[in-house]
């Protein structure tokens, strides 16, 4: 287990796991005295004891320690659907404390300008309106930073919805930083090659 240097360090880790379609086990705890939780990522689903409690917490609590152990599988094609559906469903349902929301907002506000890769992602995301707003914002805004996107929210509810779509798009790899042309191109080729 590694001590988290940043309070929401589980999000970049999840992003890395999901983007690379890795399988294995994620270990974590939220407090030094807490019990170590484990969730397993197979190619088909995310499983674990009390997953209904711990998966939402992964998206709503600052982390204390975490670890990852990979399991190698050589059939990466069949990975994504159920996993992304679970992640989407969890983020959609999550209830943030005001303090958590503020912390997440601050973290995302540190990201540089982003681009959104798909106009309509092939996922089940209930709030497509927020997604479309994000997509159009990233396409048109002169300085498409998450901070500027969140500033578009008219009230607290909308800010929550905007923050949720950001967390989802970040974790599933639908956004990349605008300066990373390479990963943008590689993602486009990846989508194409899956259909070959």
């Amino acid at each position: 287990m590694i001590k988290a240097k940043k309070i929401f360090q589980q999000l970049p880790l999840l992003r890395n796991i999901i983007i690379n379609k890795r399988t294995g086990s994620l270990f974590f705890r939220f407090k030094p005295e807490g019990i170590v939780q484990r969730i397993s990522m197979t190619q088909k689903k995310i499983t674990g004891i009390d997953i209904d409690t711990y998966l939402p917490q992964l998206f709503s609590l600052p982390i204390y320690e975490y670890g990852w152990s990979s399991k190698i599988t050589l059939t990466p094609d069949s990975y994504s659907d159920a996993i992304t559906a679970t992640v989407c469903g969890t983020i959609d349902q999550v209830q943030w404390q005001p303090k958590t929301q503020l912390t997440l907002k601050k973290s995302f506000s540190m990201l540089p300008a982003i681009q959104v890769l798909n106009r309509r992602p092939e996922i089940i995301w209930p709030d497509m309106k927020a997604y479309a707003t994000l997509y159009n914002f990233a396409k048109r805004a002169e300085n498409a930073t998450p901070a500027n996107f969140l500033a578009l929210a008219n009230d607290n509810d909308e800010e929550t919805r905007f923050l949720k779509v950001l967390v989802m798009a970040y974790c599933l790899g639908f956004i990349t930083s605008k300066s990373s042309q390479t990963s943008n191109i590689a993602l486009r080729i990846l989508e194409r090659i899956r259909k070959v």
Partner: peptide, 17 residues
């Protein structure tokens, strides 16, 4: 596998959080 490796090496990094 190559493309995933490329993306991984370019990924919006942990530095942001």
């Amino acid at each position: 596998a190559l493309l995933e490796l490329i993306i991984k090496e370019e990924s919006v990094s942990e530095a942001f959080f």
